[in-house]
Each structure stands twice: as C-alpha cells, then as structure tokens.
C-alpha cells in the first residue's frame, strides 16, 4: 500500500509536442465544432497565435508523449485495474497552441487513507512549462486506489 513515504516523490519529466493531427483527432472524437478550435483564422481572430488546446488536453499530452505512461503507478507499485480518477484540476497561466512544446514535471504532494485503509487518495501535482520557459499551467490529479475490494 502506498504510504507517506511517497510524498515528495518526483517522476521523469515528459516533453510533449502539440501536433495538429493528433489534436484534430481529439476534436473529432468529442464532436468539437467550435471555430476557435477548428479554424486557424478564427483562432487568430480570438487572439491566439495558432489553434489553442482545449481545457483538458494537457492531461492527454502528458500521457501521449510519455515514454512510460502511468509511470507513477508502476513506480508506486499500484495495479492499474485498482485505480479510479478522483479529481482533476487545471490552472492556466498562458495559452498553449499548436506547434508548442510543453514539459510536465510531476510530483506526489499528498497521500491520504480513507475508509480505514480501504482506499488511498494520491495527489500528483504537475508544473507545465513551454519551449520558452514560460510557466503555462499547473495540473493536479487525485487518484483513488481501491486497496481491498476488487473481487
């Protein structure tokens, strides 16, 4: 079981590229038709230098370009079948657009047992910077590990 010793643990930074084709595939999947996301001219008219990423896409970029997706699960010896996503947050400081390269630096910031140890909540906070060193976002996720009841 994951314990307090995991707090402060850092994982391998991930550098990801905002590629137009992959982003288009994401928009197709969600049925996105907003011109700011589908038309570069509309994005420019809205003040972006290129098509921006949608609100949750930083989460995807980190997974897509990671050489070891779910590294924190394997590093903490957590079974992928026992995790649920508890909470997710994004704080945006600057735009991220097609053509950008962003780097994710994740670390564990808290570990909390719930229901007498039946569940463990793990918070991973990730700072995101771009190719110019600008701090563009902070992302946080809370993972729920079901310690006991999977059978």
């Amino acid at each position: 079981m994951v314990d307090q010793s995991a707090v402060g643990r850092r994982f391998t930074p991930v550098t990801a590229h905002v590629e137009p084709g992959r982003l288009r595939y994401f928009f197709e999947t969600l049925g996105e038709s907003n011109p700011v996301y589908r038309d570069a001219a509309a994005a420019k008219a809205a003040g972006f230098t290129a098509i921006p990423i949608p609100p949750t896409y930083l989460f995807c970029l980190e997974l897509m370009d990671s050489e070891t997706p779910f590294e924190f699960l394997t590093a903490l010896d957590i079974d992928l079948g026992k995790v649920l996503h508890g909470e997710q947050s994004f704080a945006y400081h600057a735009p991220v657009v097609v053509g950008d390269t962003v780097t994710f630096s994740p670390r564990v910031t808290s570990v909390t047992d719930k229901k007498g140890g039946a569940m463990t909540l793990i918070v991973v906070e990730t700072e995101v910077t771009n190719q110019n060193g600008v701090h563009v976002a902070d992302v946080a996720r809370t993972i729920v590990v079901r310690n006991g009841a999977s059978s």
């Binding site: 994401f26 969600l30 049925g31 996105e32 907003n34 700011v36 996301y37 809205a46 003040g47 972006f48 921006p52 949608p54 609100p55 949750t56 649920l84 996503h85 508890g86 909470e87 997710q88 947050s89 994004f90 704080a91 945006y92 735009p95």
Partner: peptide
C-alpha cells in the same frame, strides 16, 4: 466526461478567458 464539460464551457466562454477548471469525479 471532463472533456465534454470543457467543450460545453468553451461554447459559452472564450478559451482565453478561462483561468482554472477543476472537477471531482
């Protein structure tokens, strides 16, 4: 599901005006 909620949000609010976005599942 959060992606859909984000889409509903950016239908109503210009993406450049969103400062933070968080959800509990």
């Amino acid at each position: 599901v959060m992606g859909y909620l984000g889409q509903a949000l950016t239908d109503a609010v210009a993406p450049g005006k969103i400062r933070s976005f968080s959800t509990r599942f």
